[in-house]
Write a protein that binds this DNA or RNA. Structure first.
Lengths: 161, 161
DNA sequence: TATTGTTATACTCTATAACTATA
DNA sequence: TATAGTTATAGAGTATAACAATA
């Protein structure tokens, strides 16, 4: 794991100076509540995953490649809403760290087929185990039953009609 | 409204190439579901607010100042989890646009007391009206009843114990 | 000594334009 | 003509260190 990336050290954990501020216009906002929830989950993410030096979207890329060996860059970047032009550096970084590799497959010779290296496989397995504990901790904030309800509601929210 | 800021034009609206990818490891993740929901709300935000050229966190700053006239920079930046050092440029920008002003009050002479200008008051009123329509649209994705439930669950999630 | 606001700085994230090699 | 991946570039977001004025 040669290359060191920058990681947040102070990441948004502090509670607001409660009561000193009228925050009602924001509390009532679904958009802002989603933002706040994400920041709050983000803090727990780093608490759990710090040692691996892997950002949330990098984690997403790795597990998608693991679940879809040989997938193209465009499919993953589309799924993660990362523009293909910005995705190049993402994959470059994971490749530099020896976790993934691009291969030219016999089919479409424009496309890169993405795979985990053997190192990557081992690494991602550990990553997923730690990530599972992090997810469990997130769930425990609401309890399993309400947590699953939240998951369902977020899914419905993100995929309307 | 002199200064023009950069705004996203492509902002994450596209649906993923459904079915081509096994996304189950991410679908089950609360952290990733929060991220996806936020991206999805973000698209609607810009659809509604584009004309004002105001980013979500700028909107948050403006409504907090309106609800708390004379508030200090540190209180707002703490509430919004923006570091005080980065908050300087945020306020500078709003001030350049003639929407807010810093005043030195007689109390703590280190602190800036933040106010909306008269222009700012008028502007934020329009902003809030448009934002209310955007929020209503978000709510309509789930229906009012489930929308309120989601809001409550996000609040509980973000403020554990 | 601690806090409020500030400047300087650097890395990361997200966007557009323009290119290449294939299809 | 269109698509997959790429480079170059720029603005926005988020982090640290160090400082002046004030408490």
């Amino acid at each position: 794991m040669a290359i060191k990336q920058k990681m947040p050290e102070t990441s948004a954990r502090k509670q607001s100076a409660a009561g000193l501020l009228n925050t009602s216009p924001l509390d009532a906002s679904l958009g802002y509540s989603l933002r706040r929830a994400e920041l709050s989950a983000y803090a727990d993410y780093w608490a759990a995953m710090e040692a691996y030096d892997i950002r949330p979207y990098q984690y997403a890329v790795l597990v998608l490649i693991r679940a879809n060996p040989g997938v193209s860059q465009s499919l993953i970047s589309e799924e993660l809403r990362i523009q293909k032009t910005n995705f190049v550096a993402v994959i470059d970084r994971l490749e530099e760290r020896g976790l993934t590799e691009r291969r030219r497959t016999t089919g479409d010779r424009r496309a890169s087929a993405l795979f985990l290296t053997r190192t990557g496989e081992t690494f991602v397995k550990k990553l997923e185990a730690t990530h599972a504990r992090y997810e469990k901790k997130l769930m425990s904030r609401l309890g399993m039953k309400r947590g699953k309800l939240l998951l369902q509601m977020l899914h419905d929210f993100s995929t309307p009609e």
